[in-house]
Design a protein around this nucleic acid. Structure first.
Lengths: 368, 368
DNA sequence: ATTAGCACTCTCGGCCATAGAGTGCTAACG
DNA sequence: CGTTAGCACTCTATGGCCGAGAGTGCTAAT
């Protein structure tokens, strides 16, 4: 946790390499051409497309220098140049003309959120959908979760089939339902039949005693409670612990077919491995420590990723939500040949938008 | 709704075509070989693999007959035979030696469900995951939904930020949360500040009056209620209406990468269109009327599907849940070259298993 | 009715030649 | 000295060609 490989790579790329004016513009041009066309870019076609005021030979020598620095690479002698991961890194750090998102795009996104009567899961789904559509990449959004779950309110309901439902509201407004264990209930009921009135009484007791408490605090009160109340409180503690522990439980993804469209994944074998990682949400675990260190957009390019299967993709992610209350991540996944100047502002904007939504609603309605 | 193209195709295939004993076994062998190998199967290799007691020439003539009937087809003059959609249909209808699922597989599946403390959304996720894994196809599971939502119980909670949360338990045990509209609340509060006690009172009133009522019935009581209670009841009615209307809202899929693995989808272009349909859940709409007509497993092969993008895939689906209380669908999607003898029993078993789960729990915990 | 035999067809993989794009180097130029 | 034009070189991509192999359909014999 103290030092972090990704951070190191970033520092190295941003700090140590000094480029001449010309090298910079050549690198920028190569990256941007390649991102557009997916074809290795040669010196000649480059001067053509960009109307540079130098000849192809000059560009060639600049390219050779950039290659020596490890910023470009050669698929083979006599093909054009392709940016290396480090090249993309430098581009992202200092060459890219980054902007805030278009006013127009901002409004369009806002509009879509305003459109529907939404619960928070649907926000997430929508966020993923918007992200995928406007970056043409795969999008991933994890729900914002409490860091330290606290009890707020409980209610016990008897259902038609005589089973008991425990509806639990957490401090951050999350709501969790859990059925009470049938066996235990029957054991308790054997001594003393349990009516809805009893349930209400238990709920009232807990609602008076427990608000604001975390899992271990609830545990400590168990002994002071009657058997039924204790059983319910035990369930409460379990739920709180789960909410503490589970950082990622469900992840919303969208736009996988966008990635399929990319020529680098036309042979689906590579993509399979990426999808598998995505499906199992493994990479999110890796992401979390990085993201919790700081707000803002984080970019992980190709081999900077510690997961092998992800060596040919880039991630552009940002955390959202207030640290220590509710924190999730959202972002996009695409080939390293990613339109960073578009992806980064979009992710940033969506993260701030989600922040807004959370803070105005206090994450009130959740989990449909 | 009166007549249905898929049904017609089935009848035609099952009813009209009479095959000789030999033709049947050749067709069966071709289908099974092709499903295994994904390679067009020739007469010679076929007699080799199946140890038939006839020569390749005989098989050839049988193949020619089957081709004339439209059950097999020829990629080109001198390649082996491949089953047509109709060929698969006939195989599924009458040639396949279908069985119930292995005792062992049944237990393994049961075991996985028993493993975890699950809420119903996690059942669905797990069902999709199991289905995908044990058929090596993409799996789709839609939640079982009430047909006619009924009120059961409501609770009003004041959150830390002063917004009010309405927690609503439906007749089938589904739980929905909704935040109360802030503007309205403030308007009501201006005349008469609203305390948690007031909220409890309102909840108690509604819990006494409304249980068992459907949306229109709730609407009819609105006039008899006080302003705050009426506002809450209005929200209740809205939620009930939404639950009535929404047949499909979220769909759980899994195992997409399994389909990517299939050779027919190595060139990802075709798959893209399928994925797109899958993502937008379009096909489920098409599925629902068919499935609600009857219990049991339904198979839709290639061109039998009305959606163009799905002409190269087969669906094996079954409804689950009790009609008119809660009904969802689950099943798998794969290339037409699908291992039907495995997929069908698996889908069937999982559907009955879900039925069991629903009826024992009365669909109690849901929508975590 | 079945089978053996045979001529025919078509794909697939390897091989070669060619065209085209791009490079690296060198020598000339301002 | 940086820049540029020119040129030889390298490598890929493309298309044609050939032979092997697999499979078919037909016919004649059993």
């Amino acid at each position: 946790m103290a030092k972090d490989p990704i951070e190191q790579v970033q520092k190295k790329a941003a700090g140590r390499i000094a480029l001449t004016e010309r090298q910079q513009s050549v690198l920028r041009a190569v990256v941007e051409d390649y991102v557009m066309t997916a074809v290795p870019v040669g010196s000649k076609s480059l001067v053509g497309r960009h109307g540079l005021s130098v000849s192809s030979a000059t560009v060639r020598s600049a390219m050779a220098e950039l290659e020596a620095l490890g910023l470009l690479s050669h698929p083979h002698t006599s093909a054009g140049r392709v940016p290396s991961d480090l090249g993309y890194r430098l581009y992202v750090e200092s060459l890219m003309r980054e902007s805030v998102l278009d006013r127009v795009d901002q409004l369009m996104i806002r509009h879509q959120f305003a459109q529907v009567q939404l619960t928070s899961n649907e926000w997430l789904r929508l966020a993923a959908s918007i992200l995928a559509a406007s970056t043409s990449s795969a999008a991933v959004v994890t729900p914002a979760r409490s860091r330290r779950a606290k009890f707020s309110h409980v209610q016990l309901v008897e259902l038609a089939d005589r089973s008991r439902l425990c509806v639990l509201v957490l401090g951050d407004g999350n709501v969790v339902q859990r059925r009470l264990d049938r066996g235990t209930m029957e054991r308790l009921a054997a001594e003393n039949p349990v009516s809805q009135t009893d349930l209400d009484l238990v709920a009232a007791t807990l609602n008076a005693d427990l608000p604001g408490l975390s899992a271990p605090q609830v545990r400590r009160r168990l002994s002071r409670l009657g058997p039924l109340a204790a059983h319910v409180a035990e369930v409460v503690a379990q739920v709180l612990e789960e909410a503490d522990g589970i950082v990622v439980e469900e992840v919303f993804t969208d736009g996988i077919s966008n990635v399929l469209e990319q020529p680098e994944f036309a042979q689906s074998a590579k993509l399979r491995r990426v999808l598998e990682v995505l499906r199992r949400s493994e990479f999110v675990e890796q992401l979390l420590p990085v993201l919790s260190r700081g707000q803002g957009v984080h970019v992980i390019i190709g081999h900077e990723n510690t997961i092998d299967a992800m060596h040919e993709v880039s991630l552009v992610f940002a955390p959202y939500g207030e640290p220590d209350t509710a924190l999730g991540v959202l972002g996009v996944l695409g080939p390293t040949r990613m339109p960073y100047p578009r992806a980064i502002p979009t992710v940033r904007y969506l993260a701030t938008l989600m922040n807004e939504l959370i803070s105005t609603s206090h994450y009130g309605e959740t989990h449909d």
